[in-house]
Design a protein around this nucleic acid. Structure first.
Length: 272
DNA sequence: AAATATTCCAACCGCGGCTCT
DNA sequence: CAGAGCCGCGGTTGGAATATT
């Protein structure tokens, strides 16, 4: 079989997405769903290949994506699952609601693999162990955390000037090192590590369906499978806001609740 | 302050598998 | 049943941001 190239190089755009492209994609999927990725760009009027649209939606624009840094619990879950599943990132992502396989893959390669390789002794904040690299990047730059935490970590020089932090760091929660109790936060719920070895696929499917149902009840207006369907007129998406990943509004439910409670007029879209 | 190195992550690529005809 | 087309996955990369010298 002769495989057609994923993207015809001629005329199709590559590289970073613009706010306008995001807006078009979001509006199109809100209205028509994403039944056929290959046909979607043409229908939506995007000069992108279907694959690129799918990736952008799944990894960035999807409403149920959880933004921000991974919590310590999530990282531990990834490590455990990786022991069990290997590089099956999508399978691992399925166990971590709101996280994408790409994101998990990235965090594995950038943090977790190194952590395991080094097998270093982690410093502690308020009795919780903290990854050194993340500690240096995040905690040391946050005056509030440094001030409010009982820092016992080696290498934390509080006298050092706080560095400006990146937009990503600005947008990130610091749950892996914060002193805030997140035990009641459903969005950060992960399973106890001791349970993992005994779990089979049936177990997981049951657990996940329960998790997903609770999670999706928060997004009661949104049904993601098999097509995105909205029982109301979707508002215009403020893509500038969506793209402003350094805005705390974008982190999780609050952003989308705010977004979908706004009234708006839909832009004209090409006929399908 | 400038140059260089390192980190991080969004996006791309190619393959395998599934579904449809 | 076989071929064609599409989707999803995992590996890889480019370049911006940040850290170090």
């Amino acid at each position: 079989m002769v495989r057609a190239p994923c993207c015809e190089k001629m005329g199709l755009k590559r590289g970073p997405w613009t706010a306008e492209e995001d807006r078009i994609l979001i509006n199109h999927i809100q209205l028509y769903g994403h039944g056929n990725w290959r046909a979607l760009p043409k229908q939506a009027g995007l000069l992108r290949c279907g694959k690129s649209c799918r990736l952008r939606w799944i990894n960035y624009l999807r409403p149920d994506i959880k933004r921000g840094n991974f919590s310590r619990e999530e990282e531990d879950t990834i490590i455990k699952l990786h022991e069990m599943l290997g590089n099956r990132w999508s399978a691992i992502a399925a166990r971590l609601p709101g996280r994408t396989d790409n994101e998990i893959k990235n965090v594995w390669h950038t943090h977790l693999k190194k952590r395991l390789e080094q097998n270093h002794v982690a410093p502690e904040i308020n009795g919780r162990s903290v990854d050194v690299s993340r500690f240096n990047r995040e905690v040391k730059t946050d005056p509030e955390i440094v001030r409010s935490s009982n820092v016992v970590a080696a290498g934390c020089d509080q006298s050092k000037e706080h560095r400006p932090i990146s937009p990503q760091q600005c947008s990130s929660d610091v749950s892996s090192v914060s002193t805030v109790d997140t035990s009641n936060d459903m969005s950060t719920k992960v399973l106890e590590s001791d349970d993992f070895l005994e779990m089979d696929e049936i177990f997981w499917s049951e657990v996940l369906s329960a998790d997903n149902s609770s999670m999706m009840s928060d997004y009661s207006a949104i049904s993601t499978e098999p097509l995105i369907q909205f029982p109301f007129s979707p508002p215009i998406i403020d893509v500038e806001q969506v793209q402003a990943t350094n805005s705390s509004m974008y982190d999780g439910l609050d952003f989308w609740q705010n977004l979908f409670t706004r009234a708006g007029e839909l832009p004209e879209l090409p006929e399908i």
